[in-house]
Design a protein around this nucleic acid. Structure first.
Length: 496
DNA sequence: TTAGGGTTAG
């Protein structure tokens, strides 16, 4: 080109950036600065950063871009700030996102949307909702980007009441709903245990796309409705929508959760030839889970050994988890030994092995594993339970006493336990974490699992026959599952 | 005929 203007530079930079050629884009940016005549403008930085929304490492180049942006005073430009926040967020640099957001000091909806998304990526759904409230206070009008992210947040937090409220607000304030927003609604209702509402959200979509179908199929999978999931799969094909990797994975999950081994294996065998979808590592892992969970431990191991992809430790951990469920102690020991040799710093390997022993009440062995883990300075991920009451979300950890109503909660919990014991509940101490003391201490430690505390709290604060919605970050403990069924019978409260 | 942010699984 004879006449290059900022426009041409910016377009070229955008092209490279979007094509994932970060180095080339950066090089052009530097050249542009060197030429001296044209200084990068407010279009240049979003162009440069537009490719950076894909995950990557936080290189020095990006940090110095931030300095440059501040130096030339472009941080106050909403488009620049938005892409800078998104760039940091894609690199899991939440603090940096937040710094950029604070410095931009903006009332632009895009900047807020970017920050809300960054909070979500940092697993801070509560923060996302807080930011939403703040922006409403500043009279910033939310748009569809914000709504879809918030629905995801409510789904992750199981915050149904808040979610419904935002849904209502959304219906009133934006005239058309696009697929992305509608799709996230399916997910929100499904994650809040409301499959009927999720189906309603799906039925309202005028022209469902692949993601809509994937969302509804995985919602049905989550709710243990594999036949309905298959129905939607058929419907999707009738509408000439080609299933993708996620469709198949979601369907496999549906079969997996329902123990439909034959159906799962059949779909897996058809996926490459009939649907032209290459089986990824995750599809293979799903089949391992399908077999192992159904008790076909030997078959699951054979499947791993015959996989065309190199098995990672995660598939072996699936087998190890299933071993304790099916009390296959010897196989469990072998798998655990191999896992611990390969990944001595992965706490889950020890926890699963200790569980294996605990499930058959081999307390001494279980204790030894726990000690080994402690000696290596490893800690397992803390388990939490969340419950939403009166549009407030409360979090409980094991033996949590931090709530102001703690005394009442424990009192209610003891009452509940006594009642369900009288009604036939037998505590299953094989779900205890190992610790000193005899069976009594062990039994008592079960009472203070975060799940039970959350239920007692919910029971304490609600009078009518409400449905309590309790969310967990790890799989529910088997004893808590039993206790919940009894709680439900004696309190008349439903839960999910 | 240049700009940003969102949705599905595990």
């Amino acid at each position: 080109m004879e006449d290059r203007n900022a426009f041409s530079w910016n377009s070229l930079i955008r092209g490279y950036s979007l094509a994932g050629q970060k180095e080339a884009a950066l090089k052009l940016f530097q050249e542009m600065r060197k030429e001296g005549i044209l200084s990068p403008d407010r279009f240049t930085l979003p162009a440069l950063l537009s490719g950076a929304v894909h995950a990557g490492t936080l290189d020095e180049e990006f940090r110095s871009l931030h300095s440059y942006i501040i130096k030339v005073g472009l941080l106050m430009d909403p488009f620049v700030a938005t892409s800078l926040i998104a760039m940091y967020s894609a690199r899991r640099a939440y603090e940096e996102s937040k710094m950029a957001f604070d410095d931009a000091n903006s009332v632009d909806v895009g900047v807020w949307s970017s920050m809300i998304t960054a909070s979500m990526k940092n697993e801070e759904g509560e923060k996302a909702l807080e930011l939403f409230t703040e922006m409403l206070d500043l009279e910033i009008k939310p748009n569809r980007f914000i709504f879809s992210t918030l629905f995801t947040a409510c789904g992750e937090l199981s915050a149904l009441e808040i979610g419904k409220q935002i849904h209502g607000y959304c219906s009133k304030s934006i005239e058309f709903s696009d697929n992305a927003t509608q799709n996230s609604l399916i997910n929100m209702y499904s994650n809040c245990g409301m499959i009927e509402e999720a189906m309603k959200a799906f039925d309202l979509i005028k022209k469902p796309n692949v993601i809509s179908y994937n969302s509804v199929i995985s919602a049905l999978a989550q709710h243990g409705l594999p036949e309905k999931a298959s129905e939607q799969f058929k419907r999707m094909k009738l509408h000439d929508l080609a299933p993708d990797e996620i469709t198949i994975l979601s369907l496999l999950t549906a079969f997996n959760h329902a123990g439909l081994v034959k159906e799962g294996l059949k779909l897996f065998s058809l996926m490459e030839d009939k649907y032209m979808i290459k089986a990824t590592y995750q599809h293979h892992a799903s089949i391992v889970d399908l077999l192992a969970r159904a008790g076909e431990i030997d078959d699951s191991i054979r499947f791993i050994n015959e996989m065309p992809l190199k098995p990672e430790t995660s598939v072996w951990r699936i087998v190890l988890g299933a071993c304790s469920k099916h009390q296959e102690i010897e196989i469990g020991k072998r798998v655990a030994k191999m896992l611990i040799e390969e990944e001595p710093l992965q706490a889950a390997n020890y926890v699963l092995l200790a569980n294996n022993y605990a499930r058959v009440e081999k307390w001494i062995e279980a204790e030894k594993i726990k000690q080994m883990m402690n000696a290596r300075g490893l800690e397992k991920d803390a388990g939490f339970s969340w419950i939403e009451i009166n549009r407030r979300i409360q979090r409980f950890g094991v033996q949590d006493k931090s709530h102001p109503l703690s005394e009442d909660i424990y009192k209610r919990l003891h009452e509940l336990i006594n009642k369900i014991k009288a009604a036939g509940y037998v505590p299953d101490i094989s779900f205890t974490t190992v610790q000193d003391g005899g069976d009594d201490t062990r039994e008592e430690s079960l009472y203070y699992h975060s799940e039970k505390l959350a239920f007692a709290y919910g029971d304490l604060l609600t009078n009518e026959k409400v449905k309590l919605r309790i969310m967990k970050n790890i799989r529910v403990c088997g004893d808590c599952h039993q206790a919940y069924m009894h709680f439900s019978l004696i309190t008349g409260k439903r839960f999910c």
